[in-house]
Each structure stands twice: as structure tokens, then as C-alpha cells.
Amino acid sequence: MNFTQPQYRSLVRGPFGWLLNACLVLAVVFLLCPIVIVTIISFSADAYLRFPPSGYSFRWYENFLSGDPSWMAASNKSFAAATLTAVVTVVLAIPTALALVRSRIRGKGWLELVMLAPLLISPMISAIALYGWIAAFGFVGTMAGLVAGHIVLALPYAILNVAISAKALDPRLEQAASSLGARNSQVFRRVTLPLLAPGIIAAGFFAFLTSFDDVIVSLFLSGREPTLQKRMWDEIRLEISPTVASASTLLIFLTIAVFLAIALVRRSSEKAS
């Protein structure tokens, strides 16, 4: 079995090829190893972090799910925040992505920069700034404040995802719909939206994960009831019980599930077109 494309085979022969192969294998191990370790340790029977564990049990999952109610409360809060973030982010991202891809106005470069900026500026600065801002308006500790912070972090990537779909959408399809008698709202609902769907769904899932996995904004804006990440953060900094490992494992599998979902959506939309 040969993994390499024919035109590159001479390049990956010899010691240089060995170096490349070694890097790739190490990288995969390096990227996956911590995830595997966390999964294993989440089934530990020990009372403290120890690898390899001396025995296996579900006790830390039990603790997460029913032992200590603060974990489920935090999970529920994260879930609610992430769902809200995903919905609002997508609603904001659709028109913005269409404008970004299609309009030819002056100063578009600067508008793009504004949209990219939350990715480049440290989330710590965005979080502190927003904390101060909404404190001034008396919104600290509210769900709205937390979600606003998460949307700021999620929006650039969501816009990018929708924009990729929007770029592939031929404007003539919308002209065609309109010439066939569809009113603007019908064009949007029957043509634009279905064709943007893969990008929109990916944007929504990624926005969900961005919110669910955020630590820094939650640090300042989650208020008295922490989000799951804030709860884990407190635990890690203070006592480190393997409950964090069971929470982490659940998060890992949530991410994998989201990825599978996105892959399925892409697969089915490719089949259709």
C-alpha cells in the first residue's frame, strides 16, 4: 500500500522522507495522546489524579451527573448559553457574510478587519473590556452579557463559514428565482437559505462549541452560577479531582459528535448537488 501521491514519491524517499514520516506520526500521537489519557483517567477508581489508575470505576461520572449538583447546574447553564450563542450568531452571520462576499463598497477592507479583529485581539482583552462595558450598564452576571461575549468570539468564524457557502452560491440562481416569479422573501427562503445551509449549520455548531468551550469570557461574565468551563477552571486551580476528567471526556465526545454531524451535513449536501 502506498500512501503518497505518485508525483511526490521521489521527495519522500530517503532520510528526508523518514524525517517527514517521523514528524507526522509524532504529531498524531502528540495531538491524540492527551485526549486518550483524559478519557482513560476519567474511569479511574482513585481519589486523586494518578496515571495509570490503580482501578476503574464510574464514580467520577456519578459524581458529575448526580453526586455534586453544581456540575449539572453548570452544564445546563453552558448548554443554554451555547444554544443561544449559536442561534444569535447564525442570524447575525448570514446577512454579514452575504454583504462581505457580494457588495463592492469602498472601505470594505476595514469592515473585514473589524470582523476579523476579535480573532486577533486577546480574548482576555475583549472579555475584560466587555465586563467593564456591561458593568456600566448593569448587566453583569446576566445570561445576556455572557452570551454577548461568546458571540463576539464566535462571530468571525461563523461569518467565514457562511461566506464560504455564499461565495459558492451563483447570484444568477437568485435572479432566476426572481424571474420565475418569486418575491424577495420567497427567493431568500426557497433558494438562498437552502443553498447556504451547509455553511450555516457548520457556523451554528462551531458557535455552539466556541461558547461551550470558553473559559475567559466566563471567568468575568458568568456571574454567581459558573458555566461548565468556569466550574472546571475553579476545580483545576483548587483541588483537581478526577471529576474534571469525566467532564472533559464528555466534552471531547460532544466535540466529536458535533464534527460527525457537520461531516454528515456536508456529505448529504454534496450528494444533492
Binding site: 454579514t96 452575504l98 482583552i125 473590556a129 454577548a148 463576539v152
Partner: peptide, 28 residues
């Protein structure tokens, strides 16, 4: 189909919850 106002929701949000807060924070 693209209208001028398409810029408004996304940019407006970022101005309100990112640019202005960061600006106000830096001014401090």
C-alpha cells in the same frame, strides 16, 4: 441579492459589544 443593511446586524453587534467596549477600556 444583497442590500446595504446586510452590513448592519453583524457590524452593529461588533461595534456595540466589541469595538466600543475595547475602546472604552483602552481610554481608561
Amino acid at each position: 441579492m444583497v442590500r446595504r443593511w446586510f452590513w448592519i446586524p453583524g457590524l452593529g453587534f461588533l461595534v456595540l459589544f466589541f469595538l466600543l467596549p475595547v475602546g472604552a477600556f483602552l481610554l481608561q
